[in-house]
Design a protein around this nucleic acid. Structure first.
Lengths: 115, 115
DNA sequence: GTAACTACTTACCCAGAGGTAACTACTATA
DNA sequence: TATAGTAGTTACCTCTGGGTAAGTAGTTAC
């Protein structure tokens, strides 16, 4: 295996680690919603209007396990739950921005011309 | 809807466009393999050792339709096929780099401590 | 007392993502 | 003649991501 191939293998490994966390229809949208500050369950649901409570609950749990999202219970009446990004979640800012930039670029380059 | 919400909705839309293209287990790895230059079918298959010819063929077709990848047939004997990134595919460089960076960061922060 | 809001959970279902294995068709080499 | 390499295709199967709908448990407002 030459050096170029080794670099390629290294990159492929790193991308797989990242993909395992951000894979799926809802994780990136949920993280984006939380970059705008701490939010409650219902607020996220309103932001991402077509997510079901089941999927939101499930994906929030997965993100919590991966230490991307932090869940805080408040002893108010009634009990409220708040979700926020951990430092690891906040470290995704650059990644999220590039996804957004490229999404806009893609829309301009390809999607427009199809319509 | 206040201004903050509008920005959030705008971002969510852009991320969905991008996600539709990069969604799935194999697309990002295939694009990464092609950032190292034009490659043939078998070369990509060797780089990504656990992809089946079926999935590689299928995902390359999808990437071609989205104008990320270009397929070139060479009239040699036997016929050879070459795959390369289009300018739109090359415009993903920053996005790919951020995925790699974050993947490495994530491995350091979380995966290590689990072992 | 009943309707509505909070934050979920549970049960059920289905399409499609992805895996495996075998097959095609052509060329080159031993 | 047979084995290996080129670049895929096809058939079949399984599993799970995600959708829908309804239920739960507590609080508050009318």
């Amino acid at each position: 295996m030459n050096q170029k191939d080794q670099v390629c293998q290294y990159k492929l490994m790193a991308s797989r680690d990242a993909l395992e966390v951000i894979q799926g229809k809802w994780r990136i949208p949920i993280i984006i919603a939380l970059t705008h500050g701490t939010k409650r369950f219902g607020e996220i649901q309103r932001d991402i209007s077509d997510i079901s409570p089941k999927m939101l609950s499930q994906e929030l749990k997965a993100l919590e396990m991966n230490k991307i999202v932090k869940r805080t219970l408040h002893d108010t009446m009634p009990v409220t739950t708040e979700y926020s990004l951990t430092p690891l979640g906040e470290s995704m800012t650059n990644l999220l921005n590039e996804i957004l930039n490229w999404g806009l670029h893609f829309r301009e380059e390809v999607l427009k011309r199809d319509n």
